[in-house]
């Protein structure tokens, strides 16, 4: 088990190299000069040349990249072009907001989705099933930013129940977390329903019932744990989309997380800042995936035996 975890963490190194390399060269090849953006249109060529040299932007791209990576290994995320302050300070002060928002969204969506999916499966083809699957369909089809705007219009502007933006109090978590978690909830609920439906048709469910186990215990004890395996897979994938979603959601709600920071950094051609955010996202995504894979082992003994 420990050997497996260490192996997976080591595999993170090539992933980070690959991701940073891609982002670095794509951003560098995009039009727009960060020095011009900082100094403005009126700056003299001398001023531009001076700042370019100062920021190390006159060196070949490969040298710039290698220098960045050497810094990264030492825990130095570089200096932001736009603010001239260390990227690490900015990223780590913003990161807790994104983490908290994502956690709330994930917990709420899973806590709603799994019971909903199970009820829909047990009451297959009833009104409850149809209504919950219709809601799930809406959740999957609706773009997140649009849902966010609608929520904001209704609950903040019309009804005034929740703040429009920012992260000042616990109330301000509700709308962004809902907007972020709704799509995940929808697809998790649908997956739970279909895997539950498949599970309750299995032979071992019939065996359990032939032992005299009551229907509700069959669902709770026998079907649920087996149905959970595909659900975990989907939840894991969803958390990836949650990170992407946080970029949109934080922008709409002016949430002070790293999703919004990254959007701002991209418009400012602030390469070190974008890279810093990307590295954090990459590490988060990989760790979540690792946790999901370990979770399989707890649910399914067949998978657990493969880890050792």
């Amino acid at each position: 088990m420990i050997k497996y975890v260490v192996k997976r963490l080591l595999a993170l190194i090539p992933v980070i190299i690959g991701v940073t390399m891609l982002v670095f060269f794509i951003l560098k090849s995009a039009p727009g000069d960060p020095v011009r953006l900082i100094l403005g249109e009126q700056a003299t060529p001398e001023q531009v040349a001076e700042l370019t040299e100062q920021m190390g932007l006159d060196q070949p791209l490969l040298v710039q990249y290698v220098k960045y990576m050497i810094g990264l290994v030492q825990g130095d995320l570089g200096i932001a072009y736009s603010t001239r302050r260390p990227v690490a300070d900015e990223v780590f002060s913003r990161f807790p907001y994104t983490l908290k928002l994502s956690l709330v969204a994930t917990v709420v969506s899973i806590a709603l989705a799994i019971p909903l999916g199970i009820i829909a499966a047990v009451k297959q083809n009833t009104v409850i099933d149809n209504v919950s699957m219709f809601v799930a369909l809406i959740g999957i089809s609706m773009p997140m930013f649009w849902l966010a705007l609608l929520l904001m219009l209704l609950f903040s502007l019309k009804l005034g129940w929740f703040p429009v933006s920012g992260a000042a109090s616990w109330q301000s978590y509700i709308l962004p977390a809902f907007a972020l978690g709704f799509m995940n909830m929808a697809s998790t609920a649908r997956t739970t329903r279909s895997s539950m439906l498949e599970t309750i048709r299995q032979d071992y469910i019939r065996t359990a019932r032939s032992k005299g186990v009551s229907n509700s215990v069959v669902i709770r004890k026998h079907a649920f744990k087996n149905a959970l395996i595909p659900t975990i897979t989907v939840c894991g994938l969803q958390i990836g989309s949650l990170l992407g979603g946080s970029v949109l959601c934080e922008t709409v709600f002016a949430w002070p997380g790293i999703g919004r920071l990254m959007v701002q950094a991209i418009s400012a051609r602030d390469v070190p800042m974008v890279l810093g955010c990307t590295v954090i996202f990459t590490i988060c995504f990989s760790i979540v995936n690792l946790l999901v894979d370990l979770l399989y082992g707890f649910v399914d003994p067949r998978i657990k035996s493969m880890y050792s």
């Binding site: 032979d203 071992y204 087996n226 399914d300 003994p301 067949r302």
Partner: peptide, 10 residues
């Protein structure tokens, strides 16, 4: 079918 008659996670 004994292969499928037992619950794999118990």
């Amino acid at each position: 079918d004994p292969m499928t008659a037992l619950n794999p996670v118990m």
